[in-house]
Amino acid sequence: MKHSNITSLVLFILLTLSTSLSAGASDYLNDIVRANAYYAEKQYAESAQVYESLIKEGTKNGYIHYNLGNAYIRMGKTGPAILNYIHAQEWIPRNENLAANLKFAIQQTRDKIEPPPPGTLNVLFFWVNDFNINELVYFAIAINFIFWITLILWMKFPVLKVTRNALLCVLLLSFVSIGVKIKNESDFKLGVVLAEHVDVKSGRAVDAITLFQLHEGALVTVTDRHHDWLEVHLNDEQKGWVPQKSLGT
């Protein structure tokens, strides 16, 4: 009797959990369909609102950012559009439509600043920018699995020594690639000017000297953060401070 009660309880919990999970997934897909429908009906502001709410809930998906970027382009908001295309690139880095739309959006800006060229580390690990972090992790897991299986087989068949060593190299390389990716995402932060124009100051003060002006959609590299100010970097000669609220990162 007691045993059957526990079984019923476990079944009930599992059923409730699976129902709530599927209900959550269903709501999420409904929102996507709704946002896409708004877009198709040219109600871009409403469409953007739904996509934004999904992102605020913590959803991480490159295609949502891509669609949101399109909605902003249609609304004439180049800055938020570029920001979302940049975010989309973190998840769908090889998407050709995304690259084309980002290029289009940059062409719409006044400053027409292209994304900064890759650094030395990125030139060496040229493949890192073509994969998102999840893909690199899955690859490393797969190689890790193959390596350890090969190691087991090698104990039985010593002829597999070369394969074992090659796999070890690939595994180490995949770990370093993940490290480079994480370093890129933490150090090399791109920012997009969201305000119509922003004065880049020589210091973190409103009355500091204005070094140059950037306009909506301008792409900058954020190199430092201090309270409500961000240090932005265009090139070795052009860098300065802007209020945090004027920049999207």
Binding site: I64, Y66, N70, A71, W91, N97, F104
Partner: peptide
């Protein structure tokens, strides 16, 4: 020139959470 269209295939919207 214009932007390329949005994606509507629902299978693409699976969450990419780390």
């Amino acid at each position: 020139t214009d932007i390329l269209p949005i994606y509507t295939e629902l299978d693409k919207f699976q969450s990419d959470n780390v």
